[in-house]
Amino acid sequence: MALDALANVFVRLGTASRKGITRLGFAMRFLTAVVSHSGTALTRPRLVVREVYFGGVLSLVIVGISGLFIGMVLALQGYETLVRFGASESMGVLVALSLVRELGPVVTGLLFASRAGSAVTAEIGLMKTTEQLAAMEVMAVDPIARVVAPRFWAGVISMPLLAAIFSMLGIYGGFVVGVPLLGIDAGAFWGQMQAAVDWRHDVLNGVIKSVVFAVAVSLIAVFEGYDCTPTAEGVSAATTRTVVTSAIAILALDFVLTVFMFRGGV
């Protein structure tokens, strides 16, 4: 009996992994399909611009406010620790490195997934449910080229820009708390930051991270929408999956990228 139960656990684990791997395979095949059907999206940039508006511009406020507050909190918390070592001048370094390397790409990715990614999933899912995608297909219009690819590319374009805005506002938030409020010297704040942050090693790697997250989140969002069960529950389940899968994907990819990028001091 106990052995049976144990076997059941393994069977379930095995089934779950098999399904997970199959889904990953489908998603990858979908990615190649999206990329190879991007001709329409790229020759008609209006399609992409429209989606950049819905994905990027409308996420601007939430991303900006979050960045500002996270930078301010980082500065306050960092001050507590740094002041014990008499190194409060390094606050600029702390705030800038945390934001540029980690928090900017990761938090923006999470916000983008829940604000824009879920909306894209719901939109595509609903188009599938109401046969709008099938209608396009019958009109000899490829829904992947016309609906999916523009949303995918809009995400890939918007998210790195949002991450940069997030980091910039975060650093500004840290400056506001650190310099006028806590009395750190403005010159030291910027100077130490500039001495410690390397544009290639830190800034560029942060941008690369945000691009990778953007591809992951956008792919998950369009894939879940396109792949959802065409019912009301199917769409809502797919929307939830987009947020959850995106969060896991971002954090896991972040670990992998960090290992490769910031390993050692070099």
């Binding site: 611009v49 511009v57 540029v100 940069a164 980091s167 910027w190 500039q194 390397d198």
Partner: peptide
């Protein structure tokens, strides 16, 4: 118009990070 403003702010932020923060 909005997308243009958004892209401009985004590129400005990237420039800010590279020049002011990263000391390019």
């Amino acid at each position: 118009l909005w997308v243009g403003i958004f892209v401009a702010i985004g590129l400005a932020a990237l420039l800010f990070l590279a020049l002011k923060v990263g000391n390019l």
